[in-house]
Nucleic acid binder design. Structure first.
Length: 480
RNA sequence: CGGCGUGUAGCGCAGCCCGGUAGCGCACUACGUUCGGGACGUAGGGGUCGCAGGUUCAAAUCCUGCCACGCCGACCA
């Protein structure tokens, strides 16, 4: 831990791998594709989780927990679903010292087992809407894992709802997409493009998938959350029916929606810089780190006293503050260490500050002198820190929006498209192509159709690939 | 599953061609000096050299097989 990380600007992939390990977010597990989320990384995930959970409850959802083992036959009930998930299933074939009569699937997602239960629970329109969320781990056997972004086992939430009408289901699907949008902007400071997935890219078993797509620091797209309108696909497969108000039987219309530990990767890759992590204050496990500076025991006593007093004042003001009084490292070492760990605000307190009863503030989002302010009265730290944190949160969002907007380019023909993609940017264009066209485009340029943005220009245009008349524009990019 | 790499101390690596006491930097432990942007000195601790065979008086080093991991592709929250 002696050297700085590889600068982000120099080698993005190396930077990511180094930062997540050096900042102690994560460690590799013994099985390929598995990761250990270490306390600092888990604290970040807990903040993400809590902020999402709060919003789910506020929109009327209840948490529940469904089993991790799913009978293999369940997965097979929905044709598209089984086709989509088969290659990445982990199967339990032996247990209790014997071969099982029917293999069990370690859940890759819970639509099937939840619908098996819904079939028992839903009898009447009075049982609807049924609004359930589950926090759980899921397993998808990945061929090419990357910590947080794509791991064999990951943590997530999966919402599962059932409704009496297709309109209600569609409303719910979009409502939860909005919840995600609200979360990423206001908590994670990550701007996104919200839109609808193409048939190629939609969830296996959904009639329609909506997504939030975030732009990472290297220009690649990250699908940061999805919300699916499942139609009646699963309720039909599982025979779930309810009696309507007019006495007829109907299959309920359903939704599912999820955000995973991938979001942690999104936070890292949206805000990080050459020196390491940059965490948005609202999600940062530690919002303010207090670093003391002293030369001798006399200074030490006075500095220490003030450091603890400032720490208490910050905590009283609702700031997640921590004082680092360890004597193993120098102040300079700590400065660099906490910058690497992305702590939004650093407070320096030395003998000169004790004398003036003032402290030094340094903000992580603006490196060096520019982000440093001397002489902040010790009595004001709570108020000023709160203001600074709010300002840092805003600046991070504004910077990310600026970055996103300046890297989405409207293109009109193939040549321009290829150029924009090769340049690491996103291409936006009229699109009337087929799934086959999408695949061809990916083979040629590496870009995939990320989504049809919900915000459309209106009218019609010429498809940049086929020249046919198109009614929608789509956004294309290389993706994680 | 295809292509290319890499496995030696917690991490990063050298040693392998040309077999002969397993090394370097960081980290770790102790003590002292330091301390407003990654300090220094002295003394220490730590290794089945990925695994299994083979060749040899002797293998990290040569030979054979296997395994794992990483990067690039096909698949994905």
């Amino acid at each position: 831990m002696s050297e700085a990380v590889t600068p982000r600007s120099q080698d993005y992939a190396a930077w990511y791998i180094e930062v997540i390990q050096r900042a102690e977010l994560v460690d590799y597990g013994p099985v390929k594709g598995t990761m250990v989320i270490k306390p600092y990384g888990y604290a970040l995930w807990e903040n993400i989780r809590d902020q999402l959970d709060r919003r789910f409850k506020a929109t009327g959802h209840q948490n529940a927990y469904f089993p991790m083992f799913i009978p293999y036959s369940f997965i097979q009930k929905e044709a598209e679903h089984v086709e989509g998930f088969s290659p990445e299933l982990a199967l339990v074939t032996h247990a209790g010292g014997k071969e099982l009569e029917e293999p069990l699937v370690v859940r890759p997602t819970s639509e099937t087992i939840i619908n098996f239960m819904f079939e028992k629970w839903v009898k009447s329109y009075r049982d609807l809407p049924l609004l359930i969320n589950q926090w759980a781990n899921v397993v998808r056997w990945e061929l090419r894992p990357r910590p947080f972004l794509r791991t064999t086992e990951f943590l997530w939430q999966e919402g599962h709802t059932a409704h009496a009408t297709p309109e209600e289901a569609e409303e719910e699907t979009l409502r939860m997409l909005d919840v995600y949008v609200d979360f990423v902007y206001n908590e994670a400071a990550i701007p996104v493009i919200q839109g609808r997935k193409s048939d190629n890219e939609k969830f296996a078993g959904a009639t329609r998938t909506y997504t939030i797509e975030a732009m990472m620091g290297d220009g690649k797209a990250l699908q940061a959350g999805t919300s699916h309108n499942l139609g009646q696909n699963f309720s039909k497969a599982f025979g779930t029916r309810f009696l309507t108000q007019d006495g007829t039987l109907e299959h309920p219309w359903q939704t599912s929606w999820g955000v995973s530990t991938r979001m942690v990767g999104g936070v890292i890759m949206t805000h990080g810089d050459d020196k390491g992590l940059v965490l948005p204050p609202r999600l940062a496990p530690v919002q303010a780190i207090i670093v003391p500076i002293w030369k001798n025991d006399t200074e030490k006593a006075a500095v220490k006293e003030m450091v603890l007093r400032v720490e208490q004042a910050l905590i009283a003001a609702g700031v997640r503050a921590k004082a680092d009084l360890s004597e193993q490292e120098t102040a300079g070492w700590k400065f660099n260490e906490y910058e690497m760990r992305g702590v939004p605000l650093r407070i320096e307190i030395g003998p000169k500050d004790v004398e003036k009863q003032a402290v030094v503030f340094a903000r992580r989002d603006r490196p060096g002198k520019e982000g440093k302010q001397f002489g902040i009265p010790a009595d004001d730290v709570g108020r000023v820190a709160t203001e600074w944190l709010a300002d840092i949160q805003q600046s991070l969002l504004q910077r990310a929006i600026q970055f996103r907007d300046s890297n989405i380019v409207d293109v009109e023909d193939r040549e321009q498209f290829a150029q924009v993609i090769a340049n690491g940017q996103w291409a936006r264009a009229w699109w009337a192509g087929t799934g086959t066209d999408e695949r061809k485009l990916k083979d040629e340029t590496g870009a995939t159709l990320r989504c049809f943005p919900l915000s459309q220009p209106g009218g019609t245009g010429r498809c940049f690939l086929t020249g046919a008349e198109a009614t929608e524009v789509a956004v294309f990019a290389k993706a994680y």
